[in-house]
Amino acid sequence: MSAAFTPALPDERLAAGAARLATRHAGRFSAETVQGLLTDSYRRLAETASVTTHLVVLAERFTAERLDALAHVQGAPGSGLARVLFVCSHNAGRSQLAAALLQHRAGGRVTVSSAGTHAGPGIEPHIVQVLTEAGADAAGAFPKPLTDEVVRAADIVITMGCGDACPVVPGRRYLDWPVADPDGAPIAVVRAIRDDIDRRITDLLAGLPST
């Protein structure tokens, strides 16, 4: 039974997170909507996470990102920044590299997110190391499943080895970056993959509005 593999919902801690998120989005989303999305986020992460110790905290962060995307889709006033979404199969390597590098290079010019069509249990070991070497912040990164509202909120969706698994939303700009998979690769190869992605990030930023 699935209950043997999925941790029971920690109601008290989820309720506290839902209250914080509901307060942040007061007048935009009902408490019931926030609670439902948080519970869904927790269950999605619990299905694949290898370590569940901090799952409640991660579920709240994942829900915050989903609520921000949903607000954008519904036309709520926002920052007006271009929104870039990186998608790979497991959100454990390439898309995490790309999101952290773009966040680092963009200087606040874009809103960045990443997801996996089949989110993995954790970030691949060398990813944090090569990002730290490049001066990018990888703290707190964790694989997130791809959700509809995050795709719909994106202005640019960049796929990286996930084939046709990413849903296509009309009006979005789609790019495919044929980047090697760092899964199980030695550190020197992962550094080369990082540098390949970084060059693509440079080209992407050159084509974005300056403000």
Rank of each mutant, 00 (worst) to 15 (best):
L205E: 00
A46V: 03
L70A: 04
L204P: 03
A3W: 08
P145H: 02
I123A: 12
H54W: 11
H54Q: 13
V189M: 09
V151L: 10
G116K: 06
E12N: 14
V128D: 13
L205V: 00
V57A: 14
D195N: 06
P143R: 12
G207V: 04
R28Y: 01
S114W: 00
G140I: 06
A19T: 12
P7M: 13
R200L: 07
L38M: 10
Q74N: 12
F29R: 06
Y42I: 10
R44S: 08
I193F: 08
T52S: 14
R44N: 06
A59Y: 03
G80P: 06
V112E: 04
L204V: 06
I193E: 07
A26L: 12
V130Q: 02
V34Y: 02
Q35F: 04
L58E: 13
C162P: 01
Q35T: 15
R83Y: 05
G184M: 11
L70W: 00
H90I: 01
R44Y: 05
G120M: 00
R24E: 00
G78P: 07
G17M: 10
M1W: 04
V84D: 08
F86Q: 13
F86L: 14
I158R: 09
R194W: 06
G161W: 02
I187E: 10
G108W: 10
V157L: 11
V110G: 01
N91R: 06
H104G: 02
L102I: 08
A139R: 15
P121T: 00
P143G: 13
L14I: 13
A165Y: 02
V112Y: 04
T39K: 14
D40V: 05
V179T: 14
P10F: 12
A71L: 11
A180T: 06
A8Y: 01
V51T: 14
R199D: 14
A136H: 01
G17K: 11
G184H: 08
G78K: 10
H104K: 03
Q96F: 02
A71D: 08
P77Y: 08
S41W: 04
P145E: 03
D181K: 00
G135C: 04
P77F: 09
A138H: 11
V169D: 11
T202R: 15
G171S: 13
R105D: 03
G75N: 07
A92D: 03
S113I: 00
Y174M: 15
A185T: 08
S89W: 01
S2T: 03
P121S: 04
R109Y: 01
P10C: 14
T147M: 03
H104P: 02
R194L: 09
R66N: 05
S210T: 15
G171W: 07
P145S: 09
R199V: 11
A154L: 10
A49Y: 03
L208K: 04
R61W: 06
G207W: 04
A22C: 12
H126D: 10
W177S: 07
